[in-house]
Amino acid sequence: MNDRTTGDGTRNTSGPTARHDRMDRVTQPFVAHRNLLFTVAYEMLGSAADAEDVLQETWLRWVGVDPDTVRDQRAYLVRITTRQALSQLRALGRRKESYVGPWLPEPLLTTPDVAEDVELADSVSMAMLLVLETLTPTERAVFVLREVFALGYDEIAEAVDKSQAAVRQIAHRARAHVAARRPRGAVSAAETRRTVEAFQQAVETGDLQRLLELLAPDVVLLTDGGGVVRAAPAPVVGADQVAQVLGRIADAMSLQPTQINGDPALIVRLGGEIDTVLALRVDDSLVTGLYAVRNPEKLSRLERATTLRR
C-alpha cells in the first residue's frame, strides 16, 4: 500500500487511495448537481447536444479544482456551467445564421414531475425557449439564473463577469422583454391538455371546422427540418393556411400524445418511426403556436425521458 505511515510518523497521502478519495470528493457533488447543471445549460442553449458538451467542459474544469476549498459547490458548478454555456451560445448564434429554414429548440421527452413544477415547465416550454432566443446571450444567462434558478445577484455577477449593478439592470431589461412576449392568457395544465386532445382528434378525423375553431386566427406554424428533411422554409401564418398543412398529416401518419418540455405535445409517427415532434402553444384555450421539429438530429432523445431540475 502507498498510503502508509512513514519513518517520521506522518501519513503518506500521495498514493492510489488518496487519489481515489480525492476523485470521490470531486465526483460526488458533480453527480449530485448534474441534472441542475444540464437544465441551466439547456435553458441557455435550447440544445440538449450542446448542453451535454457544456457539461463535459464543466467537468474538465471542475476536476482540476480542490473541492475542499469551495464554500458553495452548487454555486461554483453553476458558475462554470454558465460561463461555458455563454461561450457555446455565441458559437451557436453563428451556426444559426446559416441554418436552413426556421430554427427550433431540441425537444425533450420530460418526466411527469417537470409538469408538476409550473415555473420549471414554463421556463423549458418550446414557446418560452423561443422567447429566450430573442435575448442577448448575457440577458439570457441573467434571466435564466435569476428568474428560474433564483440565484443571488452576487452569484450571477460572478458567473457573467459583470458588476452587481449591471446585472440588476440586465435582469430588469430581460424581464420586461420576456413579459411582453409571454402567452397572452394564463392557461392551466388541464386546459392545455384538453385543447391538445381536441386538436389531436380534429386532425386525426379530418374535422376541418373543429380544427379552425381551435386555431387562433393568427396562429403560426414553424417547421424545423434543418435542411435535412422536407419542411416549410418560412413560417406558415393564419388558421386557414395552417389547417391546410395539418390536413395532410392524418392520411399517412399517426399521432401519439406525450409530454415534451413539460407540456402536452404530440409525436408524429410514419411507419412506426418518429417523424416529427409537434409542440403547441395554447393561449386562452386557442392554439396560437405550433412547433414542428423534423430535423432528425434533434429527435435523438425521445426514447427516454430527460430529468430536469431546479
Rank of each mutant, 00 (worst) to 15 (best):
G7R: 12
Y42R: 05
I156C: 05
V236H: 03
V228S: 02
S254L: 10
D24P: 05
R79D: 10
L255G: 09
R11P: 02
M253A: 14
R248F: 07
Q209M: 09
A75L: 13
L246N: 04
L132E: 02
V287L: 04
R140D: 00
A279V: 07
D251F: 13
E158F: 11
E155F: 07
D283I: 06
P233F: 01
I249V: 15
A198H: 08
K298L: 02
L77I: 04
E213Q: 14
M1T: 10
E119F: 10
V282Y: 03
V203H: 05
H20D: 12
L270I: 05
I80L: 15
R194C: 00
R230V: 11
A49F: 09
E106H: 06
A166W: 08
A159I: 03
A166V: 14
V245T: 07
G7T: 12
G206Q: 01
R181W: 06
G152P: 08
A51E: 04
N35H: 15
G9Q: 08
A141P: 01
G15A: 13
S285M: 09
R4W: 09
E147V: 09
R181C: 05
P217C: 06
E213R: 15
G226F: 03
V277C: 10
R301G: 03
T5K: 12
L89C: 02
D72R: 14
V236L: 04
T288K: 10
M253S: 13
T307W: 04
N12I: 06
V287D: 04
A127Q: 13
K298I: 02
R175F: 10
P137E: 02
A48G: 14
I170G: 00
V187E: 11
D8I: 06
A18P: 06
S98L: 13
L222Q: 02
E155G: 11
L222P: 00
L135W: 00
V65I: 15
M23D: 13
R309M: 08
